[in-house]
C-alpha cells in the first residue's frame, strides 16, 4: 500500500468528560471507498467529523494524505438564501475559482448528479428532499476533491431515491477518482458503494474489524449484495452488534 489517503492513529474523543470514541485506528488507501458501519450512537459521525477536521481529537493523530476534501452531511445543509446554483458555486469560489468560472463549474457539477438545469435558479425551499441532497452531492464534487466524507447522507431518503443517490456516488467515484469514508448503518448501502467495510465497536472502543468486499462497486448484482449482507448478519461474528439499538446513547 502506498502512503494512505487518510490515516487515523489511536484517535479518541470525549464530550463533557464522557469518552465517545477511543483508540480508533483506520487507514484508507488512495481512491479507496471505505464504509464505516456500527450501531446508532457508536460514534461513527463523530469520527468522520474529527477526520474532516471539524473537531479536534482529544488524543491521537489524524494524518491526511489527500489534497482536498469535501463532505456530504446527513441533512443537505444548503444555505436557504442562495439558489441551488449559488450553493454549489459557493464551494467552487472557496476553492479559488473566479465568480464566472465557479458558476460554470457548479452548472457542470449539478449536471453530473442529474439535477435539472431549469431548477438551478430555485431556492432550497422550492426543491424536494431528493433534489436538495443532489445539490449537496454536486457541492461536494464541484471542487474536484480527492477525498469525500459521507456522513449518513441518504438516511432520510426513501428506498428508491436512496438507490439513485448511491448510483450517483458510485458513478462519481469511478469517474472522479476520489477516496471516501462513507458512514452508514445500512449494510446493503455499504455493500453497494464500498470496496472495504469497517465495523465500529458498539460503544466506540475502536474498529472491531474490516472486511474486503469482492468485486467492484457498481458491478455487484442485487443477488450478490443480498447474499453478502445475509452472510454478514447471520454468519459473521463481526457484524453481531451492528443492528443493536440503544437510543439512550444517541446524542
Amino acid at each position: 500500500m502506498s502512503s494512505p489517503s487518510l490515516a487515523l492513529r489511536r484517535v479518541s474523543h470525549a464530550f463533557l468528560g464522557r469518552e465517545v470514541i477511543s483508540k480508533i485506528n483506520l487507514e484508507i488507501a488512495d481512491h479507496e471507498v471505505v464504509a464505516l458501519v456500527g450501531p446508532s450512537g457508536c460514534g461513527k459521525s463523530t469520527l468522520a467529523h474529527i477526520a474532516a477536521g471539524l473537531s479536534e481529537p482529544k488524543e491521537g493523530r489524524v494524518i491526511r494524505g489527500y489534497a482536498r476534501h469535501s463532505m456530504v452531511f446527513q441533512e443537505p445543509r444548503l444555505m436557504p438564501w442562495a439558489t441551488a446554483l449559488e450553493n454549489v458555486a459557493y464551494v467552487a469560489r472557496l476553492s479559488g475559482l473566479s465568480r464566472r468560472r465557479a458558476r460554470a463549474a457548479a452548472a457542470q457539477s449539478t449536471e453530473r448528479v442529474g439535477f435539472l438545469p431549469e431548477d438551478l435558479d430555485k431556492f432550497p425551499v422550492e426543491l424536494s428532499g431528493g433534489m436538495r441532497q443532489r445539490i449537496a452531492i454536486a457541492r461536494a464534487l464541484v471542487a474536484n476533491p480527492d477525498f469525500i466524507y459521507f456522513d449518513e447522507p441518504f438516511t432520510a431518503l426513501d428506498a428508491a431515491l436512496k438507490h439513485r443517490m448511491q448510483d450517483i456516488v458510485i458513478e462519481a467515484s469511478q469517474s472522479g477518482r476520489f477516496g471516501a469514508l462513507f458512514v452508514t448503518h445500512d449494510l446493503t448501502e455499504a455493500a453497494r458503494i464500498a470496496s472495504r467495510i469497517a465495523v465500529m465497536h458498539p460503544t466506540g472502543q475502536g474498529i472491531m474489524g474490516l472486511r474486503d468486499i469482492s468485486g467492484r462497486p457498481g458491478m455487484r448484482s442485487e443477488r450478490e449484495l443480498f447474499d453478502l449482507t445475509q452472510h454478514w448478519q447471520h454468519d459473521d461474528p463481526l457484524f453481531r452488534h451492528v443492528h443493536d439499538v440503544d437510543e439512550r446513547r444517541i446524542a
Binding site: G53, R68, R77, Y90, V91, L94, S95
Partner: peptide, 24 residues
C-alpha cells in the same frame, strides 16, 4: 451551526464564514 460546519469543511476561513453564513 450546521451551516457553519459546512462552510468550515469546505475550507472557508473564519472571516469568510462570518460574512457568508453568520451575517446572512
Amino acid at each position: 451551526r450546521g451551516l457553519d460546519a459546512m462552510a468550515e469543511v469546505f475550507g472557508a476561513t473564519r472571516l469568510r464564514r462570518f460574512w457568508s453564513v453568520g451575517f446572512r
